[in-house]
Measured scan of single mutants.
Amino acid sequence: RSRTNFTLEQLNELERLFDETHYPDAFMREELSQRLGLSEARVQVWFQNRRAKCRK
């Protein structure tokens, strides 16, 4: 699998939701992934990586 390149719109939406909650539930992830045209797994990994970045 190659690296996912997020569009600016996708990143803005992901960051907006991250500001609301660092741990979106499965329903939120599924709804977001459909809206952004990403797989739920990519959304989940993005949040994992974003939380790690936040801890640094």
Rank of each mutant, 00 (worst) to 15 (best):
V45A: 14
F47S: 01
T4Q: 09
S33P: 02
E15M: 03
Y23P: 00
C54L: 14
M28Q: 13
P24N: 01
S33N: 04
T4V: 06
R3W: 06
R35C: 04
S33Q: 11
P24S: 02
L32W: 06
E15R: 03
R50N: 03
L11A: 07
A41W: 10
F18H: 01
T7V: 01
T7H: 03
V43W: 00
R51S: 03
S39P: 07
F47A: 00
Q10C: 02
K56L: 03
E20G: 06
A26E: 12
V43G: 01
A52P: 02
R35F: 03
T21W: 03
E40N: 06
F27K: 14
L11Y: 04
S39L: 04
T21I: 07
E40M: 07
F6L: 11
M28W: 01
S33L: 05
T21Q: 12
E30M: 12
S2F: 08
T21D: 12
S39Q: 13
R42L: 14
A52D: 15
N5C: 07
R35Q: 14
N5I: 15
F18Y: 08
R55W: 11
V43L: 10
F27C: 12
R35H: 02
F18M: 05
T21C: 12
A52Y: 06
E31C: 07
H22E: 15
F47W: 05
N12T: 14
L17C: 09
L17F: 15
D25S: 11
K53I: 15
H22R: 09
Q10H: 06
S39G: 07
N49L: 10
R29I: 11
E20V: 15
T7L: 03
Q34A: 09
P24T: 00
L11Q: 15
E9P: 07
N5L: 10
K56R: 07
K56M: 06
D19P: 00
S33C: 14
A52M: 12
R42M: 14
Q48K: 15
Q48R: 14
T7D: 12
F47I: 04
T7P: 03
D19V: 10
T21G: 06
K56V: 11
F18N: 01
V45R: 09
L17P: 02
W46M: 00
N49P: 01
R1I: 14
F6M: 09
Q34M: 06
H22V: 06
G37C: 09
T7E: 03
Y23M: 07
W46Q: 02
R16D: 07
R55V: 08
E40P: 10
D19C: 14
V45E: 15
E30P: 00
R42T: 14
K53R: 09
T4C: 11
S39I: 03
R16V: 05
D25E: 06
E40K: 03
F6T: 03
S33D: 04
Q34T: 14
N49C: 10
E31S: 11
R29E: 04
L17R: 06
V43P: 00
E31G: 09
N12L: 09
C54M: 08
E20I: 10
E13Y: 04
Q10S: 04
V45K: 10
Y23R: 05
E20R: 14
H22N: 11
C54H: 14
R50F: 01
L11P: 00
G37E: 09
S39W: 03
S2W: 02
F6W: 04
L32G: 02
R1E: 07
K53S: 14
E30L: 13
R3C: 11
N5Q: 15
Q48G: 08
K53M: 11
R3P: 13
N5F: 06
V43R: 00
R1V: 11
E31Q: 09
H22F: 03
F47H: 04
E13L: 07
V45S: 10
N5G: 08
R51P: 02
V45F: 05
N12E: 13
R29N: 02
A26T: 13
L11W: 05
R29A: 09
G37S: 12
F47G: 04
V43E: 02
E15S: 05
F18T: 00
W46G: 01
T21H: 11
G37V: 02
L36H: 04
D19G: 14
A26K: 14
R50P: 00
T4W: 08
R3Y: 15
N49K: 12
N49Q: 12
G37M: 09
F6K: 06
M28R: 13
A52H: 05
F27V: 14
T21L: 03
D19H: 08
W46S: 01
L11F: 08
Q48N: 12
R16I: 05
R51F: 07
Q10T: 02
R3Q: 14
A41G: 10
R35G: 04
L14P: 00
N49V: 05
E40F: 03
R51H: 10
D25P: 08
L36Y: 04
F6I: 08
R1K: 13
V43M: 05
S2V: 09
E9G: 07
L17E: 06
T4F: 11
E31V: 07
W46K: 00
R55G: 13
G37I: 01
A41H: 12
Q10I: 02
E9Q: 04
E9N: 05
S33T: 06
W46A: 00
R29S: 06
L36D: 00
C54N: 14
E20H: 12
P24V: 05
T4Y: 10
E13H: 11
R3L: 13
N49W: 05
Q34Y: 05
T7K: 02
R35T: 04
Q44P: 01
Q44G: 12
E30K: 11
T7Q: 07
C54G: 12
R16S: 13
E20W: 03
Q48W: 04
R29W: 06
L14Y: 00
A41S: 11
H22A: 12
T21V: 07
A52R: 06
K53H: 05
K56Y: 05
F47K: 00
H22D: 10
E31L: 06
A41Q: 10
R51Y: 03
F6H: 03
R16G: 08
Y23A: 07
A52V: 08
Y23K: 08
E9R: 09
F27W: 10
Q44H: 13
R51G: 02
A41F: 04
D19F: 07
E30R: 13
K56W: 06
V45L: 10
C54R: 06
A52G: 08
E30F: 06
E30N: 11
Q44S: 13
F18I: 02
Q34S: 06
A41R: 13
E13C: 07
Q48D: 13
R16T: 08
R29K: 09
E20C: 12
F47R: 01
A26P: 13
Q10N: 04
V43T: 02
E40A: 11
W46D: 07
G37L: 03
K53P: 08
V45G: 10
K56Q: 12
P24Q: 01
E13Q: 05
Q44A: 10
N12W: 07
L32P: 00
Y23W: 09
D25F: 01
S33K: 08
F27S: 15
L14S: 00
L36Q: 06
E15D: 14
L11V: 13
M28L: 11
R50K: 07
S39D: 13
F27H: 12
D19M: 13
L14N: 02
E20D: 10
V45T: 12
L32K: 00
Q48P: 02
S39R: 04
L17I: 10
S39H: 06
E15N: 12
E20L: 12
R35I: 05
F18D: 01
T21F: 07
R51W: 01
R3I: 13
L32S: 02
K53Q: 14
T21E: 13
N49A: 11
E40T: 05
T21N: 14
L32H: 00
L14K: 00
E20F: 05
Q34R: 14
A41I: 05
